[in-house]
Design a protein around this nucleic acid. Sequence first.
RNA 1: GCCGAGGUGGCGAAACUGGUAGACGCACGAGACUUAAAAUCUCGUGACCCUUCGGGUCGUGCGGGUUCGAUCCCCGCCCUCGGCACCA
Length: 855
Amino acid sequence: MSDYDPQAIEKKWQRRWADERAFEATEEPGRPKYYCLVMFAYPSGHAHVGHVRNYMIGDVIARMKRMRGFNVLHPFGWDAFGLPAENAAIKNRSHPETWTRDNIAHMKGQLQRLGISYAWERELATCDPAYYRWNQWLFLRMFERGLAYRRRSTVNWCPDCATVLANEQVVDGGCWRCGSAVEPRDLDQWFLRITEYADGLLDGIERLDEWPAKVLTMQRNWIGRSEGALVRFAVEPAGSEGSAGQDAAAEIEVFTTRIDTIFGATFVLLAPEHPLVSRFVDEAPDPAGLRKQVQEFRALDRTDRLTGAIEKEGFDTGRRCINPFTGRPVPIWVANFVLAEYGTGAVMAVPAHDQRDFEFARKYGLPVEVVIQPEHPDGGEPLDEAALDAAYAGPGVLVGSGEFTGRPTARAPAEMARAAEQGGFGRAAVQFRLKDWGVSRQRYWGTPIPIIHCEACGLQPVPDEDLPVELPQVAEFSGRGDSPLAQIPEFVDTTCPSCGRPARRETDTMDTFVDSSWYFYRFCDPTNGERAFDPGTVRYWGPVDFYIGGVEHAILHLIYSRFFCRVFKDLGMVEHEEPFTRLLTQGMVLRDGAVMSKSKGNVVDPDRMIASYGADALRLYEMFVAPPEKEIEWTDSGLEGSFRFLTRVWRLVTRVAPGLPDASGNGVDGRGLDAAHRALRRKTHDTIRRVSGDLDPRAHLNTAVSALMELVNELYAFCEQHDVKLGPAPEARAAALPAGTGAVLREAIEALVLMLSPFTPHLCEELWERLGRTGGLCAAAWPGYEPAVARAEEIVVPVQVNGKLRARLTVPAGIVEQDLREAALAESAVRAHTAGREMVRVVVVRGKLVNVVVR
RNA sequence: GCCGAGGUGGCGAAACUGGUAGACGCACGAGACUUAAAAUCUCGUGACCCUUCGGGUCGUGCGGGUUCGAUCCCCGCCCUCGGCACCA
């Protein structure tokens, strides 16, 4: 039986760390800082072992960096606004704040029982007015700069959550949170002009070389930059068939990435929502009939329209416009597959060279004109519009394209865009998939938008000195769809800050992603009552050196934060361009192949695991089982294995170490030691080398643990060999050991305890204390190693014949090439495989291997 | 379709710069201790074959290539996962 009692040890050290405020961080100019941050938590109720995996990763890094002499900032807080709190309040007839604060208290307890080294005095919650007033402050700065604006728009409406969703929050046409089908709704909404920074956000990706490729790809896709041209087609007046007149007021601007195909644009397509459509319909001979068609298109399921799961359909408006390159009129159609929200909501259709346009043209009998011929080096048949059964979208040479005929498709677009610009009917242009960020939410539990609506003065910002606009107390949550704040006259009714007359407050609250887009700066200066944060403080701590969180935030949170960082930079409050230098997206913890969730009933409660095995075993298991970025399948036996290892460590240290000679300082002197002792020293120093590199910079936490396991195995073998019994009365036994043995053991054991401590801090603090060390591991330095000792004296060199392993040679590490070669050739196994054959060459890689090549 | 990451024992995984494939752990098997069990400690454990210690052949998704030597580099495929997608 082991007397390793994790519960008692953990309680003891958690209390001591709290009493000593061991992880408080204070600025120390001149001392290197390290800002290690795990994405703060949504206080949903209970953390499960999947949630806590990333907190543990952050803790290992933070503790290790602290030991390596860095001034480490490792804070924690709560992303406390949001819908679940409000829904819970409706259900329980309570206040969202009650639910939120209760959950925070519970989860904080869970995290503290894991012994995570947070600077708890910096804890913040976004639902605190002292925090969200700075959301409001920042919103006003953005309003002043035109970065926050209001417009009527069709928004994504989630009927179940009864609120608007940002584009980023619509997943496969459904609500990211509840999955309900999203509906279109026309509302006046607040937007943040993230598109202003689209190019910068895209360019910045190139410099994020410590981010996972996956996340960068996702962001690139999301921003969706595409280069092309805008071209204006002048609309012919109604009923001008055959006449030369043009309606100067009406133009259709299209965006195209293939201006090189414009001579083949045989018609133009408008989205049903395009502003000109209703006008064309009104002016048509049969307005009723066309109007009905438009209605049908607009009524199509929005999800299906966006995912392309519908049949391509359209109708002729009866109007025509002039292709500015050919001067020829082309018909204007309305098509259900043209998206109003991308580009200009209008496209030129080139059926010969775009598959969608091709299908549409064939369906409605519209003309197809080939204007690109592929270059067949072997002289294939030229494309012919009558025989075409699919669009040709590949490269080639322009044909039938006026002055541009003969140009290759690689060069033509730039030239033709220039021609359009010179002609005054177009220009080269870039379009983004990224849209402005809709931040209005018709909800209570969020940051009130600090704007006042005055009939006379229009939109008026709440003066800075009146911030924060606090959330009013609401007696009861009804769950009705409209904004709860709109139903509270005391909140709504106010006076205009400009003219003093009665006015109404904005009743929308902000998307909670606003809260989380800058909290990492607030952690640097969490109690500042004068400003969001002191720029000097952020100059010291920022940017975040190591950011850890789930890949589900790859787009939303991580792109918004990068946006806010740039806004703060433009406000002169930060100096860096990117908020997170290094990003690690940790893998999820699955159970029975599925993500843990209450509804699936497969949740593993960390407190239950702590009760059985202790927090240290839980921590170690989650770090050891796989690299941090991989998802893992929870197994109880794996956790037991980690517990078993800690028991081995405990027994080894408590039964061997007490009474061993002090090996601090430069460690032991290698002289006079026999080979076995020197081998253990080598293992110790080599383990320090490996673990140090695995943790920093590689963050391969799993292999760091396995290296430490090897060291423990070696220590057990050494004790066995040297008759060091792991029984009771360690002091007496230690005293009886030869001095060299004791010193080598102590050096190994101290290194082990130090290096294991970021993973299992409670156990290691206890062992450190029992080793007679004072001051605690928080103050201890990471062990160093001597390369000369870490290097093996003897190495095993594989000997191959024609690349196949035939023998292993144990030779001195410093062996010269000639000796190694001779030793290899002298091996009987080598001779057996080379006998009677011609030796072509012998490859000798110093210290690595010998390969004998024979024919 | 475009972009990205992957594919290694029964399982989770290692192999850091082209150099002994499978470290470390789980599971399993054998032994020691024990009246017994648990715990602990030791040993074994990729597949196939010849077998006497021992040795041989194959083996990192598939097919080629480069190289003395390839899990790693190149070419062509297959599959899995993630993102974007009627984006003009």
